[in-house]
Write a protein that binds this DNA or RNA. Structure first.
Lengths: 159, 159, 159, 159
DNA sequence: CATGAATGAGAATTCATTCAT
DNA sequence: TATGAATGAATTCTCATTCAT
């Protein structure tokens, strides 16, 4: 907590004014990131084809974390920590609503495989996560093309 | 540490006899799990088709963690922790050698897409991880068929 | 450390804020005592005869430890302890500079024996130490006159 | 204790067979050294002059600790430790009986100053101690002549 | 009888939280 | 109101002692 206060340029007392204890602080950060993550989808144009919308989503969510590397580090370290409450996790799950809705439509239109939405979602989530882990381990010189990842995921879920 | 000793049914001093400090203990557990993970591939029959071998690997590695849920919990909580040293991570990376070699062959035989091995590996790793996260969040009644996951991954990497 | 905190009327955390660990705390006390010991000589009047100055020094340094019995106990217990670093010992040796300088003058004036300064110093140090050990072992009723000690030392070093 | 057992080439259990606990072990070592120290005086020839006997004693006791540097280290570290019992200290004080008796004679014969034996003893003890501290801090190349020390002490106590 | 692995009370150290300024 | 020094419960680690082999 004292390290956080120092980094934030405030006293510890100030943090405790807004967040009664460390658990609440961490959980609020968690939820904040999840909300921002969800908002990535707001700008999307639903006039475009399903495939394009999906690809846009996929690259946007990755771009989001590339632009906010500390968010990614935070999630990597804490998503499985006992400090994150069940309640926070539930609220955090809202972040996948947009892509979930897109998948529902795609499935109805028989564009993608007839697999449970949840199962597809977790699969896509895994692709996002692994790409980002890779990205942040890379020396910045060798950039991995996102195209390949997008093709892999789309070939996977496409009917 | 005292909780670990209690759970292990030993005194704390005994743990410190074998592992000089907590960091070393945790890193040894990390490496042990990674080694076991690698050994999953030992039994494999290289006479089978590439696809079958791949599917076997994929389901085996998932089976491994389902049989050892504590291993999975440990990795989820600690893989991104600063307590895991760079050295341990490097040693841990040996666990993907078997599947890596399989992919090299598959690529040569033009069975799978012409994408860098590392990129394919991280993609597959993401699929494994996301399935397991899902599995352990499930109430045990609703079992998700692994078949779907295998099909998704294979369709993704197949040429 | 907890006993020290209790005695000091603070929490243990407070000690650790100023002294990162026990070793540093102990070494700081060591150096502090040595510095105070040195400052005993500050008040001295260099107009007086060499002999008088010497006698003043001798009785002052003994008076200093009699007034601060805990200082003496600390030194007795810790001067040979491995917790006192070589660096601290070197810094502590500054405390003998004043008397050392006095002896240099005394030797030039052929007042004292033509023996190496260091050898004289150690001899004097031994006399101080042994008197103090004696003093603190005494029941307070039987006070040993310091005069005798001073005569002994002076007769020893005098030409 | 385990370090002691290792150094001694035995198991810890063996030590505990002979010395029920660490305190007793340390105190026994203390007393053993003190006894050896006393025996240094056994060989002495009472036919010699008092002065010669004194000088022999002085150099013998120093020689004793130079030959047994670990004894000196032990005493330096532990003489003021709370682990040494009052009883051990009392028993240890026997080691000064021989020199004490010599001083009684010397005083009767008016060879040395008319100062209390105990005071003379502590003075001499201080000289021994300071010489040894000096000796063991020296780089072995520069040997300090013991003659000077002996002259210093004798001039001090001589009438 | 000798051993040294096992023990756990006690010591050192940390860090979330409080509260006087 | 904002601060960060002070706090001490909780944690890590040590080491004298025991006891099964």
């Amino acid at each position: 907590m004292s390290a956080i206060a120092k980094e934030a340029g405030t006293g510890m007392g100030t943090i405790y004014k807004y967040y009664p204890n460390k658990e609440i602080l961490i959980n609020n950060i968690y939820i904040k990131i999840k909300k921002e993550e969800k908002s990535v989808f707001n700008d999307f144009n639903s006039q475009e084809s399903i495939k394009l919308q999906f690809e846009n989503y996929f690259s946007s969510i990755i771009e989001f974390f590339i632009q906010n590397p500390t968010y990614f580090q935070f999630m990597e370290q804490l998503h499985a920590s006992p400090i994150i409450t069940e309640e926070s996790k539930n609220e955090g799950n809202n972040s996948i609503i947009p892509i979930s809705e897109l998948l529902v439509i795609a499935k109805k239109q028989q564009i993608i495989k007839n697999i449970e939405i949840d199962e597809l979602l977790m699969f896509i989530g895994g692709a996002v996560l692994s790409y980002l882990r890779w990205y942040f381990n890379q020396s910045k010189t060798k950039q991995i093309p996102l195209n390949n990842q997008i093709k892999l995921v789309w070939d996977a879920i496409e009917k």
